[in-house]
Design a protein around this nucleic acid. Structure first.
Lengths: 414, 414
DNA sequence: AGTTCTTTTTTCGAGCATCGAAATTAATGC
DNA sequence: GCATTAATTTCGATGCTCGAAAAAAGAACT
């Protein structure tokens, strides 16, 4: 129930909402016959006919001609499934991370058309404006996919760091020289499509919801542990906060006042105990006030896990401290929002068994943990695509809602 | 944008939404002429006429005949203002607190009709079922207000403690013997009206939003400091979470692992540093592992503030530690949700000047505090009515939305 | 007292999206 | 070729909003 910022409702808003409902259902279930669409949405068959005719005429949806033999069919008129018209448009999804970046071109149906990945030099953005870097790569993408890029409808960029309340501007980022540079505006101006920035941690939550159906309507805290620590929260199936407000900065939530030195410069952040560099530091008994390593290769992190597995006391202790930081962090989170599920993702998921005892102990020590019970915690090893998936679904569903659901009726246009 | 749990939209939902819009506007602005109502809601004059005629006929709204001379009026047809029909129904609002309880009878227009307050014995609910206690007081209220109680539409109860996810059941409470007893069900059965439970901390946030127009659309953390510590969060003008899920348990959020002993039995809760009993304990150098005092009289707490003001080192230190706990707690909260405003309410608001430096230092030490800037923090001394106000607005607006906005049209009935 | 002006409120017809029920379509089975 | 079955469309009704024009209710002016 929106509280005060209500809008007038009229036949046009009904139209938009029901069209959006149809599109959301197709995103969730894949192509469906009109009959199933009616059952799934709760709309009458008559309305589904009207809506689908309209959107077929507009080229938003398309009928799937599946002449492939269908041995299961029994009798009656065969169902014709309807799905997204892949030609309706395309979007570019960009993932900017500390040392790599990935560009993906996806059509309206969610099919990957082209993709490439680049390493990112630490000083990349010192000399080149981020927007120019992106524009350059997009030009490349356009070379290779002229047709699809002509139908470009949106560009969405996943970034790490702190966005301002409107989500249009990066105020701080672990990616060097990236914060406080105009990105969305400049790219939007060059390509004449809307450009949105998204916080990586939230996309992770969004993405794991799409990858694991159990989580779809649950309240989930998705914790990424790797070279940073991040969290996305969903609440009964909705990502918390609209837009980019309310993005969580779990990694830089304080764990111990005046504690270990974090890459962000503050003391006692969770990240300063649980990120890869923190484990490295503790495992080799480097003082926790020592400046963090610039980066920890994946292989080295794996090595630390192995060392702990082999029984090395210092390394085990390092992971214990990490678990304690994560656990108390989670206990603080559930004091504010009672998550029913916790998913640990990223490289740190492989070290979950080393942290588990401390995580559970910390949660059990809190009032909410005792009363409401512990959330179901599980590592999720294979989440490589979660960010991409989240970015894609978010972007496509935004198109569904804001663009395609509100097209004027085809009849009116004709 | 609701993500997946969408509902079909039809002309009936338009009807409901626009009626709810009209009612919400009247709650916000008070009685309005039809013309102003149209301007304020964005609905056409024609629709406002239709809607108001309908709701006048149903007795939901009523025309205010204000024949009082109106020297300001210039020309033209005089405007007739429309307001809530006070006879449309009434609600009982119950505030259960650790040592007192208050019963208020309010009509649909929000006018207080009757009220009484009782002290609550610590063992009150050991011998008497909470529902029986409440039913007894309600019977009394009925004696005194036969007419209004016949039109009773809802009972809403403010409680302290942890509610389950559906908000129907109290799982833990600082009020002795109150948790895990059937309350809502039994009272509902006895009086045949819906009974809802509300967490006090959230009502505080809801109420201060209504009392301070600046906060109406802001993201606010309202912190209560007194015999307990509690927090309500609003997010761009909406209370976080629907229903009772997501209720914050700020007072029992961990501050220091293994720290001071809290009334809840856990160690290191914020409350164990910042509630009145914690100040008392620290001011007299009682070990922080000593069991908390059962209750601290208001006068004694005032005495502690005075003592600190007079320069007593131990007491000053006690308030500093409290500020530190609150400050780090807030820094953790804003790492998850960037509040723009913080309001300190309750008895502790009078001690704000003693805690302020530590609160601000803690916030400034966090990444989010540094990057996004500190929220505007201010004590709000006079909040006596905030809980009542929040409870009332929440309950009446719920009636607006769920009951009166969805009545079938008067024409259809006739 | 009557007329003009101004502002509020209502009336009227059109537009549009939904719905239920009935009709139509396109296959299978015999 | 004809009955059966299931998917889809057509049709008329309903209910809500809206814009424009009309009606209502006083104040101001002559």
């Amino acid at each position: 129930m929106p509280a005060l910022i209500r809008a007038v409702s009229d036949s046009d808003s009904i139209r938009r909402q029901n069209r959006a409902l149809v599109l959301a259902t197709l995103r969730r279930c894949g192509p469906l016959a009109r009959t199933n669409l009616a059952a799934e949405t709760g709309l009458s068959h008559a309305s589904i006919t009207a809506i689908s005719q309209d959107m077929l005429a507009q080229g938003v949806l398309t009928e799937l001609r599946e002449d492939g033999s269908d041995p299961m069919r029994i009798r009656g008129r065969p169902a014709v499934r309807i799905g997204f018209n892949r030609l309706a448009g395309s979007v570019v999804l960009i993932e900017l991370e500390v040392n790599r970046t990935q560009f993906s071109l996806v059509d309206y149906g969610g099919t990957l058309i082209d993709r490439f990945e680049l390493p990112l030099r630490p000083d990349e953005f010192r000399d080149v404006a981020p927007a120019d870097f992106i524009a350059g790569q997009l030009a490349l993408l356009r070379e290779r996919n002229r047709r699809e890029m002509r139908a470009l409808l949106a560009i969405a960029i996943s970034v790490q760091g702190i966005l301002d309340r409107d989500g249009g501007h990066l105020k701080w980022s672990p990616i060097a020289h990236l914060a406080d540079r105009p990105i969305a505006e400049d790219v939007a101006a060059a390509f004449r499509v809307p450009v949105t920035l998204h916080k990586r941690g939230r996309l992770l939550a969004e993405g794991s919801r799409w990858l694991d159906p159990d989580l779809r309507d649950a309240s989930v805290a998705t914790v990424f542990i790797g070279s940073t620590v991040a969290m996305g929260l969903t609440f009964r199936g909705e990502t918390i906060g609209r837009g980019n407000e309310g993005a969580t900065e779990f990694g830089h939530m304080n764990h111990l006042p005046g504690g270990a030195l974090c890459r962000c410069g503050a003391r006692g952040c969770i990240e300063a105990y649980a990120a890869d560099y923190a484990i490295l530091r503790a495992a080799y008994s480097v003082p926790e006030t020592a400046p963090p390593a610039a980066s920890v290769p994946a292989s080295q992190y794996e090595g630390l896990i192995a060392r702990a597995g082999a029984g090395d006391r210092n390394t085990r202790h390092a992971f214990n401290m990490a678990g304690r930081a994560i656990g108390y962090g989670l206990s603080r989170v559930i004091s504010l929002f009672d998550a029913t599920h916790v998913r640990i993702v990223g490289p740190g998921a492989r070290a979950y068994h080393l942290m588990r005892a401390e995580i559970e102990a910390a949660l059990a020590a809190s009032l909410v943990g005792r009363i409401a019970g512990l959330p179901a915690i599980a590592p999720q090893i294979d989440e490589k695509n979660a960010v991409f998936r989240g970015l894609m679904m978010k972007t496509l569903m935004r198109l569904d809602e804001e663009h395609f659901a509100s097209l004027p009726s085809a009849a009116a246009t004709a």
